[in-house]
Amino acid sequence: MPARTVNAALAGSLLAALSIVSASAAEDKMAGKEKCYGVAMKGQNDCAAGPGTTCAGTSKVDYQGNAWKAVAKGTCTTMKTPKGMGSLEPIKM
């Protein structure tokens, strides 16, 4: 496409987009939005110990082994996936 044609196409799209964006921006202004500080995420650095147990860090780290027998029982069982409902089965060791 020659530059002039591209320019004209872009200009048309831009004009159409701006008319819609400007209209909704004006609505926001009418609504008088207050300063929003966002939904806070938790700060992650702490100077305290973790929840007070002495055992959570002691189970053996064994990538292929027993630790992986934990059975996933999350929400995925309620989501229909291509492989059907109840998608997560216990890992067979």
């Binding site: 992650q44 110990a49 860090g57 996933a72 995925c76 997560l88």
Partner: peptide
């Protein structure tokens, strides 16, 4: 425990949807 729990906790905090999906 502090080392393991705090680092695992950092991941749990950062990846809550993934945690919910697999339990």
């Amino acid at each position: 425990n502090n080392v393991a729990v705090s680092l695992m906790g950092a991941l749990a905090t950062r990846f809550p949807a993934a945690r919910r999906i697999v339990g």
